[in-house]
Amino acid sequence: MNAAPLVLESLAVARGDRLLFERLQLRVAPGEVLHLQGRNGAGKTSLLEVLAGLRTPEAGRVDGPAPGQLHWLGHKNALHPALSAVENLRYWCGLQAADPAGIGAALDRLQLKAARNRPVRTLSTGQKRRTALARLLLQRRAWWLLDEPLAGLDVDGAALVAGLLAEHCAAGGGAIVTSHQALPEDGLPVRHWRLQ
């Protein structure tokens, strides 16, 4: 996986008429995890949305991945409550032209066993988050943009995410992560960066 670095040049992002930040310069190389920090309302989610291509910046340039080269995990899980984890992921595979054969292995990896065929509405918050995280394994993509991936996860879950991130970086991928919890740092090339 030879990912190009992600470069932001004098980026300005607004929500409505409120300017969140401007003249932002940032360069993230593949092989590292950028831990995006900042107070509430600083614009972490908005910045991630700009990187994903969901939001148009007011000014500046993003040299980033195309939508097909990035995984987006928003703070919402993108799971329909009436469908099971497997059905939700199968739909995602159909939409993204991914191979649904990997769903079983991905759910195994996230330690979702018996719950995978129950409607998502009956799952716990952590189980839902694990299902959403399983998408990261269904298709190899260079950049992971994760908004609060640890929300609702227990200690084991957080360690699992750290493990996934470490593997991803070792394989030459990069990630930008917002998180209020500290990311487990052993063996993970984390760079902390604060959004002012």
Binding site: G68, W72, G74, N77, A78, H80, P81, L95, A97
Partner: peptide
């Protein structure tokens, strides 16, 4: 929109 699927749809190759 509410469960976030719309974001995935907006980023899908379709």
């Amino acid at each position: 929109y509410e469960d976030g699927t719309l974001e995935q749809l907006a980023l899908a190759p379709l």
